[in-house]
Amino acid sequence: MSGKNDEKVRTIPFVRQGKKLTVGEIPEITAYEAGFLTVTNASWRTETPVCDRNRCNGCLNCYLYCPEGCVYRDGKTGKIDIDYDFCKGCGICAKLCRKGAIIMEKHGK
């Protein structure tokens, strides 16, 4: 199971890393990377979506429907990756992926 996000720490500098924000660092808008300004929130996941990058064509349909906003694009390949710190394992992405690229892996007993 590929549960790691290699680039996760790249630009998410705040709560996940335990940093305090000043008011000036608060954005004017509510669009940012997944989990911005919240603590990690994934312990209720019983299944994990795993993306087969050979099948993913980067259409981002999963991004549009992900209720947690935790799908992002891998800058190098243009394909999707999932931020497992915030994925709740709902499986919507797997359900509507037209390429069948996302498979829900059940967690071990």
Partner: peptide, 11 residues
């Protein structure tokens, strides 16, 4: 180009 979480939660 740079997918972001829209209308996120904040603790």
């Amino acid at each position: 180009d740079s997918p972001k979480s829209m209308a996120f939660s904040v603790g």
